[in-house]
Design a protein around this nucleic acid. Structure first.
Lengths: 229, 229
DNA sequence: TCATGTGAAGAGCTTCACAGCA
DNA sequence: TGCTGTGAAGCTCTTCACATGA
């Protein structure tokens, strides 16, 4: 989980970091607004957004008002305008350059189905050490040898690396990514990696999510039991 | 996000659902205890667990005490015993039968590197509609045609389905999975699916996580700006 | 009238601080 | 002494309720 900045204290100002819960909801709003824009819906109310996302309408209004005043009383939010605001808030108003490190099945899957299907990220290259995949192309993305990483990162000002290497190679890959100048890493290897101060690592932690889900899958009986104590 | 049960109120008892934050930390403790058991460490204190996980020691003690009294004052927690308790809490003390639906790159990646590498889950079969993959084996797991699903689910008492089909097939796949008798679904398709009451769907939502991360990747300047307002 | 924006109240989660026990 | 277990305090996030404005 990403750590939040501590609240700053001063005699004049309190600037509080945006809560991570809010940050996680923004992309959900964005996805919904994308589909509403496609449907040519001009205005949308917090109540309508609520019905689609499952969040309460108040929650949504609070989230949005954290960043400014985007709505029109009586009418709701201008779909297109709100979408643009959220893009700016997240930092997606300019395409962000991304690299994928590790072109096994998972890397290939992300390249094919997820990352470049949105207009927000631009995968400028993928990297691997295996001669069998280096030189290949997955959709539009070329697979390069690892020693080209720094050059590519500098050239395209890459801000984010998606790491899909096997666990045993994760630390080496992370070191190289950081060496190349990338400061934010989305790690899919089910392992913890060491990074210097200032580098952000977010672990996808599929097995943690799976096991949490197993708790809920096996827990109906447990809850029943607890309620009869 | 999984919804929590509402707190029950009665004149005699209050049974409160375990918080989802706690549930998400349990698998992290488990992963750590697994490695400590391999290192033959007999006892571990909440302070030691804190250093490895990044959670505070009090947090860890609170989490564990929610389920019982597992520690020994002055000594810490018996590594092996605590591991077994957490397995029981999550519901992993018996291997849980799982199916994977959709054997593209992502499904293959999960089959190869994640799901069956732990001793906790047992992938009894994978399913696909494409004749090119049906009949293949990935490690020990056979890829079957979709019409065999119900038979397999009944036979192995499958409790959980991992869904790795393309978005456009997600709803059809979900319907079939539920039809077969599975009530808990881990969905990797970047789309929302409709399910009847009682069925739990957890969305992996890789693009939501990626976009949250982009907020943090592009936000250093924003925070700086905010702090000078 | 309708829907936003927002203080205030409420609920939930985390940290503190220390009693209790090996 | 050392470390757990846990009420109480503190803090954050969510929901409530309503003033405000189109």
């Amino acid at each position: 989980m990403l750590k939040e900045k501590k609240v700053r204290e001063s005699s004049l100002y309190k600037v509080r970091a945006v809560s991570s819960s809010t940050i996680r909801r923004l992309p959900v709003y964005l996805r919904l607004l994308d589909s509403l824009t496609r449907d040519d819906l001009k205005f949308v109310s917090s109540k309508q957004l609520s019905e689609k996302t499952g969040y309460t309408a108040e929650q949504i209004r609070k989230d949005l008002s954290r960043f400014g005043t985007f709505g029109t009383r009586g009418a709701g939010y201008d779909t297109e305008a709100l979408r643009n605001e959220i893009l700016k808030i997240i930092g997606l108003h300019k395409k962000i350059a991304v690299i994928v490190v590790g072109v096994g099945h998972l890397g290939t899957a992300l390249l094919r189905y997820n990352v470049n299907k949105t207009p927000y990220t631009n995968v400028v290259a993928a990297f691997d050490t295996s001669p069998e995949v280096v030189g290949k192309r997955i959709l539009d993305v070329e697979v390069l040898p690892a020693h080209k990483m720094e050059e590519i990162v500098k050239k395209h000002d890459v801000k984010l690396a998606i790491l899909t290497v096997p666990s045993k190679n994760a630390q080496v890959a992370v070191d190289q990514v950081i060496q190349s100048g990338v400061q934010v890493i989305f790690n899919f290897a089910p392992t913890w990696v060491q990074v210097p101060e200032g580098v952000v690592v977010h672990n996808a932690d599929i097995s943690v999510e799976l096991q949490s889900l197993i708790y809920y899958a096996t827990t109906k009986e447990k809850e029943e039991y607890a309620s009869t104590i």
